[in-house]
Design a protein around this nucleic acid. Sequence first.
DNA 1: CTAAATGCAAAATTTTTGCAGTCCC
DNA 2: GGGACTGCAAAAATTTTGCATTTAG
Lengths: 157, 157
Amino acid sequence: MSEKKTKNSLQQQMESFEETCRTADLKLTHQRLEIYRELARATDHPSAEVLHKRLQKAMPTLSLDTVYRTLTTFEQYHLVKKVQTVDSQAHFEAQMSQHHHVICDSCKEIMDFHWSSFDGSPLPEDIRQWGAIKNKSVTIHGTCRRCQEVKERKNPA
Amino acid sequence: MSEKKTKNSLQQQMESFEETCRTADLKLTHQRLEIYRELARATDHPSAEVLHKRLQKAMPTLSLDTVYRTLTTFEQYHLVKKVQTVDSQAHFEAQMSQHHHVICDSCKEIMDFHWSSFDGSPLPEDIRQWGAIKNKSVTIHGTCRRCQEVKERKNPA
DNA sequence: CTAAATGCAAAATTTTTGCAGTCCC
DNA sequence: GGGACTGCAAAAATTTTGCATTTAG
């Protein structure tokens, strides 16, 4: 769960990103590299606005609309994914391999988790009739430990 | 899957809606009744705007902001749910009992399905450590039969 | 050099809010 | 009758677009 990204895996991800861009004839601009790196480094599924804020320290001229445009382009080339939420802002992730989400309804943090036994198990029969299934994933809602503790401190049992 | 709502179950749902409103001291206005009925009748998880359009035929003075405000109120009282999507518009459902979603990436239709064996099965151990889990649900992405056929007609194999 | 990408400003889209009048209980 | 609810209009929040300039390849 709390896997921290090692410098190596981020470097590998950047290399594979650059490779994909070259193959797809996407220009490797400074902005694209930094936006992708920031998203790949993030574990919290940030929105375009949040990404922009984080990057502005290092790139003061980066504009928000470039972040939007870049994320849209990345999405088209399957370099990033929009995360399903009930939020008004769209959230993104660079993690493209199969995984699931657990969302804290209190602090809204979205964490990734893996569940290979679910991934390998078949769907109900009637769904397999529905059409061509590309992907199935689980979303869990609840309250994370940290938020539970905050609540307990307010209303001790 | 393609369960059509019978007049009876809709009527029951309306009665239980009215009961909840009375208990919660929510006034039973014409607008609230019609918005709820329209959403309960729908099988396609409409947005506020779509609901508004559907209702405008029968209620020409109904305003879009009332639909928004009403849905927000309903959500607070757990009468409706926002559906997780990657759409810019928020989508809603009045179906509050446990179910899952299958989404056609081509026509964007969201259908409900049930999967009791999944509902009853335990989560991975590390997730149970994460906090208090309220709910788990599955989202399937793919292409529905109808859209597959349209594609085949365009590009015959 | 040239097509693609960026930054700026302005527009479009989606949702929320203040306020005056209306309606449910 | 009184407080909650609605409609209107205006604002806020989020995302997209047109265009002149810059930049990667």
